[in-house]
Amino acid sequence: MSRPQEPHRPFFPFGNPFRMISPKGSTLSPQLLAVLHAFEITLGERLKKLTPKSNDEILSLSWMSLAMQMLSETHNDIKTLITDLDLPVHDWDEKWIDVYLDISVKLLDICIAFSSEISRLNQGNLLLQCALHNLNSASSNQFSRARSSLDGWKQHIGSKNPRIEKCGGILDNLVGSLDLPKVKKSPKGKVLMQAMYGVKVQTVFVCSVLAVAFSGSTKNLVDLEVAETYRWAPEFNSLHNLVNEELRVRFSGGRFTVLKELEAVDSAFKELYPIIPDVADPIGTELDLKTVEQLGRATEKLSEGLDLLAKGVDGFFQVVLTGRDALLSNLRSGGTVYDHVSRGNIGAQAVN
């Protein structure tokens, strides 16, 4: 997974986010209001769907995968909205284009970081599978090999991922610039900027939660509050407060990890490791099969969850990259932003 090289621009050098909602002497037509309302209602429904029914669901790999799927769908929605607005490239303010390109380059960086962490966790999972294989073999040195693999897993899983550590700086940049650009004399531009605000808020929130989960630290935790003037604000504020509060509770308890499936593996590891003999050929030694099976089940669930999340992250990467390519292509041709994308199968790039 790689992204094109692009010079970094200042991200969202925006003014008051509410200035574009009801500027002096400017009103939105019923048609434009309908487009905006449809987008915001869908966003609210999506955030509601992401709200977990119980705290146990928070930061499970399946929930994180759903979060990435919802994010891909929202980014596809903004492409549909732009197509519905029929806003030609020559009508785009230069700063809007800078905003979009800067968003995309940062999101591609975050996706690459997430993918690298998923790969790192999968590498650790291979060590667990190796340990389980040795424990189920009849080799004379099965226990020493198993202990070696488990030692390797403990050391590997406790290491840090430099790419994840850099996510905090990207998120800080985004959070510090949540305001929207001033829009003058362009009703369509006002609709676009208000919709993009919703996209950005959801994006920052989801990416910050995954960054916290992967880094094992609350330093990447983002606290946001959306004004109730937005239709999707109640759903977002409810989801945001629930997830962030649970994250703080879990970290205050000194947990090894906040990832549910990884925590289950660590619990099984702690039960199994002390009862594995540390000599090469312990005569007559038998392990508690239930303990071995427990680690096996936990390892399998972790592997399945990581595969699902990897697809979600890659799907989002493709959505962002495709949108970026479409904009650059239309800048060259002078067409309508996303006009040829809307005729393509961009939905297939999202997580199904």
Rank of each mutant, 00 (worst) to 15 (best):
Phe12Gly: 00
Ser148Gln: 13
Pro13Asn: 10
Ala350Val: 01
Ser2Glu: 11
Leu262Glu: 13
Asn241Asp: 14
Leu309Lys: 03
Leu239Gly: 01
Asn16His: 12
Asn352Leu: 03
Phe14Cys: 03
Gly158Arg: 10
Ser140Glu: 12
Pro4Glu: 12
Pro282Val: 10
Glu300Asp: 12
Gly312Tyr: 02
Phe39Ser: 05
Leu328Thr: 10
Ile58Pro: 00
Phe316Ala: 11
Trp232Ala: 02
Lys48Val: 05
Leu33Gly: 00
Ile82Arg: 06
Ser29Tyr: 03
Arg145Met: 12
Asn122Pro: 00
Leu150His: 05
Arg250Met: 15
Ser26Glu: 15
Val175Ile: 07
Ser2Asp: 12
Val320Cys: 06
Gly284Ala: 14
Ser342Cys: 00
Gln69Asp: 15
Leu272Ser: 02
Gln318Phe: 01
Ala131Gln: 11
Glu293Arg: 14
Ser159Leu: 07
Ser252Cys: 04
Leu87Phe: 13
Leu306His: 11
Leu302Pro: 01
Ala146Asp: 03
Pro162Asp: 06
Val249Leu: 10
Gly344Ala: 12
Ile58Gly: 00
Lys53Ile: 10
Pro88Ile: 07
Ser342Tyr: 05
Gly25Gln: 12
Lys106Leu: 09
Ala113Asp: 03
Lys301Thr: 09
Ile82Ser: 07
Asp56Cys: 04
Asn76Asp: 13
Leu308Thr: 12
Ser140Gly: 11
Asp266Lys: 09
Val265Leu: 09
Asn122Asp: 08
Glu261Asp: 10
Trp96Val: 02
Val222Tyr: 01
Asn330Pro: 00
Cys111Glu: 05
Lys49Pro: 01
Ser149Phe: 10
Ser252Thr: 07
Phe316Asn: 07
Lys260Asn: 13
Glu261Met: 09
Thr336His: 15
Gly344Asp: 12
Gln123Trp: 09
Met1His: 08
His8Met: 08
Asn134Lys: 10
Lys95Ala: 12
Gly216Asp: 09
Gly305Leu: 10
Gly312Asp: 08
Ser217Pro: 03
Val226Arg: 08
Asn330Ile: 04
Asn16Lys: 06
Ile346Phe: 15
Ala195Met: 05
